[in-house]
Design a binder for these strands. Structure first.
Lengths: 268, 268
DNA sequence: GCAAATTTGTTCGTATGTATT
DNA sequence: CAATACATACGAACAAATTTG
């Protein structure tokens, strides 16, 4: 009798879900049925169900019931450069998203461009003093019309004075900023580092991605620092994705395409 | 008056936390103080605090109070191979963990070795029929004595018959399995693919990592498929890390060491 | 070292609101 | 419109952990 009652109930339901007694999309008994089944009050049943919601195992729909969740097809994004096209593969226009079925159509908003001062996080990655002026270019990305990622790129403000004026214009740079900066500033991107973190979403992100407001769905935050031929950071791009429908691939060395590894539902 | 009261309270507290009125480690007012401050019942206050817990903003300690969380130093692991040592950097003995201070000492348990049949997930990645017999080698990894990761590697069962008998022994393979398989089976690992996902922890993981049992701290699950010189999968390694104290780095092309990018607390 | 006070954790009861069928 | 099912909110009681006197 160590565990509290709501946890015992949660574990009991969890076992039934994970062992397939309640398969995905199945409706669980109603709260009042569970009240009888477990001999607990409705509030205690609800505490148990809340913890299953936190685990992502079930979702509740007012007026309908509680249902075992079925995860949506994940979007898979490759972070490493394409072996064939070489460095920068997937850069500029968008991250490449493979293993996503062909009928998926990406879209990008026009950038929201600002001049702002560098905060600690960005300043450290760009290796500039805190408070320096930066150009930030913020874009929203969609796939099949649904919000997919939020992306912000930061460049030193002086890039615009040194010939890359279009960084300050709120229009997409069609050839990609990698090409553009090479052409205008002779800055050649020779590599990049992706720094992958996971955190709770902020209010903006909850709104944009339409996440549950309690923050149980977290987000990837990926910091991409791009380096020029002198090994200096030339750009920092921060991209945010919900964790519940995004996965990432990193290829190292010689590897075949990922298509072969697409996987049936469930596993472990 | 659209939002429910507990959410308004949560947003109010959240704002105070994010704007620094309540800095990290600060104790929030007690539940009964908040009851007076917001004119809500204790249960409603508790609902608000629960949602802040889900967001990872606060933690409660029975008998003490509610405190603004302070995130621990993350462990940063590089997934891409080392530029200098070439392919396989960080393989065999352990993933490399850089930017972790030098005084951190890793440890690995002896492997738990089994012969089992391939499930869908692993079978697809190893490109073998489901139900085929596999050798699994499971290890627990620690840093400074605290649980860090759970790792399981899968190999085709017949590798042991073809000369790599030690795969079946429950002892660490000191030179690393990459070297061992090259020596014994002439299988040269020419590359690997890491597939990065995030999910809720299962009961094993909650126990091992000592995560809160409600699953609000999720885990990275990284599938590493290693390929041989014929572009066939020779190994699948699944590693699980808690997301709250682990981050990952991917280097592509020519990049300087990551040390420069270590970042002060907070940011946005 | 112990008892009291403080603070959060669990459980129940009850009432009312809102979404769906 | 009525019935069903989940969501929110309040009140109350006791338990468990911790600090304080």
């Amino acid at each position: 009798m160590a565990d509290p009652k709501y946890r015992q109930i949660a574990d009991g339901l969890r076992f039934k879900i994970e062992s397939g007694v309640y398969p995905p999309d199945q409706k669980l008994p109603t709260e009042s049925d569970l009240t009888d089944e477990f001999g607990a009050s409705r509030n205690t049943i609800r505490d148990a169900i809340k913890s299953l919601i936190n685990l992502g195992l079930v979702e509740t729909r007012p007026g309908q019931g509680t249902f075992v969740t079925k995860r949506p097809d994940p979007l898979v994004t490759t972070l490493s450069a394409d072996e064939v096209t070489g460095l920068g593969g997937g850069e500029g226009a968008a991250y490449r998203s493979e293993v996503s079925e062909e009928h998926r159509t990406p879209a990008v908003s026009e950038p929201d461009v600002r001049v702002q001062t560098a905060g600690g996080e960005i300043a450290a990655r760009l290796r500039v003093p805190e408070g320096m002026r930066l150009i930030s270019r913020h874009q929203q990305r969609f796939i099949d019309g649904t919000p997919w990622s939020l992306q912000t790129s930061f460049y030193p403000r002086q890039f615009a004075n040194q010939g890359a004026e279009r960084l300050l214009e709120d229009q997409d740079i069609a050839e990609g900023t990698v090409e553009y900066l090479l052409k205008k500033l002779k800055l050649k991107q020779v590599g990049y580092r992706d720094w992958i973190t996971v955190r709770a979403p902020n209010l903006n992100e909850i709104t944009f991605f339409r996440l549950p407001p309690d923050g149980r769905v977290q987000v990837f935050e990926i910091f991409r620092t791009a380096f020029d031929q002198d090994a200096n950071p030339m750009r920092v791009t921060v991209t945010v994705f919900p964790t519940d429908c995004n996965q990432f691939i990193v290829n190292v060395g010689k590897v075949p395409p990922a298509k072969y590894e697409v996987v049936p539902p469930d596993g472990s």
